[in-house]
Computed example of a mutant assay.
Amino acid sequence: MKGLLDPKMDFVFKNIFGSEKNPKILISFLNATLKPKDLITAVEIKNTDINKGYIEDKFSRLDVKATTSNDEVINIEIQLKNEYNMIKRSLYYWSKLYSEQLKEGEDYSNLKRTICINILNFKYLRTRKFHSGYRLKEIYSNEELTNVAEIHFIEIPKLEEGSDEKDILVAWIEFLKDPESEKVRSLEMSIDEIRQAKDELIRMSNDDTQRELYEMRAKTLKDKISALNEAERKGIKKGIRKGIQEGKKEKAIEIAKSMINIGLDKDTIVKATGLDLSEVEKLMN
């Protein structure tokens, strides 16, 4: 058997969790994440098509969209690389999901509870917990305004060794981390949905067409990550250059102050330090 594909790759994740053939996988994951008082019993999965254009577009979002039996609109996105914009990005997509529910003239009461779940393969928030959920609350009393808006972050690297695998969300994150691990082999024996997900992953991994699409998507995302890393490096270099320039300026100002103290005229100070005349005059006042 060929090695298993990485379920953290958005193309693979969408095929497993966003498949109409195995809705129980998504239901299990949502119940594990949201821990609702009334369990979700059914989902209607949207945007199931994945065409070649999406695979090759590094800006495309292969997320999972669904509505639930609890009358909720859900969006799940998985991110491999920190682009430093996850909070604003998630709020933007949440607002689109929320506002697009209404057609012109429809009543606001038709708006459904809207939830974004962000699965991150990097540490992002300050909290030590691997799973964080946010709603709208009053800033002094912490009273909840509404539960209509909810945004979750699941940071895979923060899952600690020895976490309680009876928590089904921990089991799902173990599956995403390493589907071939002994932990997952044990979990798939006791949790039907984990076994179904593993079976689907094995099927995809042994399908030459699916593997080819996976490789295409992996290359596209690798190119995107390389571009992000290059931009990051340029930003660091620019920051270093700026720091050097700022350091030089501070040194020039110190020298100018010393020259002022011994009574030198402003023209001499300008020539000696390279500061603007207006800057020297400001220091002299």
Rank of each mutant, 00 (worst) to 15 (best):
I50N: 10
K52D: 14
P157M: 05
S226D: 12
L34W: 05
F122M: 01
H152P: 04
K137D: 05
I50S: 09
P157Y: 02
E250A: 05
G18K: 04
I244D: 10
I225Q: 00
S99W: 01
E155W: 06
V280F: 01
K183P: 01
Y93K: 08
I269N: 01
D267E: 11
K166I: 03
K21A: 04
K58H: 13
R217F: 10
L91H: 10
Y124G: 08
K46M: 02
P7F: 04
G239R: 11
F130H: 11
I168K: 10
K8V: 11
T268I: 07
R203H: 12
D276W: 02
A256G: 11
A227T: 06
W172C: 05
W94K: 02
L120R: 04
I269C: 02
D57H: 06
I151F: 03
V280D: 05
E200A: 11
L111A: 09
H152A: 01
G162L: 02
A32W: 03
K103M: 10
L30D: 01
T146R: 05
D192I: 08
D49H: 11
E44H: 06
N51G: 04
G247Y: 07
G235I: 06
M216P: 03
K35H: 03
K198N: 08
L80K: 15
R89K: 15
E100R: 08
L228M: 14
N70K: 09
V184W: 01
E174K: 14
E143P: 00
K2F: 03
S28C: 05
K266P: 00
K158R: 13
L264V: 05
K166T: 07
I253H: 10
T146E: 02
K35R: 07
Q101C: 04
K65I: 08
E144S: 09
K249Y: 03
A218L: 12
K81Y: 15
T41F: 03
G3F: 05
N147L: 04
K237A: 15
I25G: 06
K224R: 02
G162F: 02
S28A: 05
T127N: 15
I74G: 02
A231D: 12
E230Y: 12
I240R: 06
E161Q: 14
Y108W: 14
I16G: 13
R128N: 15
A252H: 05
D199H: 12
K96N: 12
T41E: 12
A149N: 11
I27G: 03
E106P: 06
D208K: 14
T68G: 08
K234A: 12
K282H: 07
K8P: 01
N15P: 02
